[in-house]
Structure formats: C-alpha cells, structure tokens
Design a protein around this nucleic acid. Sequence first.
DNA 1: TCGGTATTTCGCTTATTGCCGAAACTATCC
DNA 2: GGATAGTTTCGGCAATAAGCGAAATACCGA
Lengths: 95, 95
Amino acid sequence: MLDECKALSNETRLRILDWLKDPEANFACGDTAELGVCAGLIQLKAGTSASTVSAHLAVLQRAGFLRATRRGQWIYYRRDEARIRAFTETLHRSL
Amino acid sequence: MLDECKALSNETRLRILDWLKDPEANFACGDTAELGVCAGLIQLKAGTSASTVSAHLAVLQRAGFLRATRRGQWIYYRRDEARIRAFTETLHRSL
DNA sequence: TCGGTATTTCGCTTATTGCCGAAACTATCC
DNA sequence: GGATAGTTTCGGCAATAAGCGAAATACCGA
C-alpha cells in the first residue's frame, strides 16, 4: 500500500501509466498489443534521460503496476491490469 | 490526484487515517462522534513531536482527507468520508 | 490582564527522491 | 570476435520531504 502510493506520487510515473493504457495511440509503433512499449519510446515521450526513465519504470514495476518482457535487445513494458485493479479495490476497501 | 497520492505516501499519515476510522476504539476519549479527535491525542498515539504531527495533519487536510474543527483550545480532526470515497473512485476509474 | 494549555509556525538538520552523464551489461549484426 | 544499439547500474548533485525544539499564536479560566 505504501509502496504503491509512493509509486503514484510522481507526475512522470502517472503519465507513463496513462500512456500505456493505449500504446497504439500514444506511441508511434505498431504491434504493441501483447508486449507493450519499449523503454526507448517511453523515454522519448517523457523527455528525460534514459537513466531517469529507467528508474521510474523500475519503481512502477516494483509496485506491481508494470510488467517487463525482454525481446532481443529491447525491453517492453506493459500495464498489469489485474494488479492495478486489485490495488484500487484494496484502496477503496481499506482507506 | 498527485497531491492525494503524496499524502498517502507516508506510514504515519496512513495510520492516522486508519485510527480515525474508529476514534472511540483507538483513542481513550469519548464524545468523538461528531467532532473527531484532538491533535494532542493523535500526537500521543503517533509518538512523534507536536510539530511533526501538526505537519502531517496539515498535509492530510490539504489533500481533502481530513476536516478540522476548533472547539475552544482544541482542534478536532475527523475523516472526510465523502472526499475519501470520491478519491478512491476517481482512482479506480482513471488509473 | 495574567498564567496555563493546545496547536501551529519557524529555523534547522537529516533522509529520501529525482535527475543526469558515464560506465557496464545484453543482445544483434557483420 | 568487434562494432553498434538498447537498457540498466553507478556516483554524484539538487530538490523535496520528514523530523525536532523553540518561539509564536489561540483560547480559556481565574
């Protein structure tokens, strides 16, 4: 609960989560349905350094909101809808 | 949304919100039904300095989760259930 | 008005977070 | 194997958050 809230306490991370709700619309790359979006594209859209965006992605992943898949030299990130829903429901129940 | 999440990103603040769900059970003082619990009792329970707990209460109030009422020399704090519910529902809808 | 209690504000120190560039790691292509 | 591209890790610096004690403010009762 604490870690999840901390993960959501940053503008850039909130935007990343939002962008990944519709990868096709927000990133100029097809074939994102299953895998998600690679880190480089997220970095471009966020407009920060690679290391910074990597740290953000790690925080979101540790909180359980994102899942990562390596495919060749790319690492693709996508939302974990089940975990996100579980969190919002837990919050609704216990806050 | 950001401010609300930041307000929840602290162990002590989460505990305060939880305690205030049942003031009678968590604080040794009757008559809390309408007004809530005064800052001093919250400070005692939290085990930190008065200034620290005052800052936490201010953060929770700014986020909309708490309402304060002055009664004489005491300031009573209680949850704003409507705002809390509104927040969790917004989060569920937009996250 | 004075003295006492409750709470907040101020000034300061320490801890955490956010950001960057450089270096390291991983995989591809030749 | 060597060069190249994508991503993460490391080391350091700036900004924000969290904590405290002392001082200021607010209210009450005598």
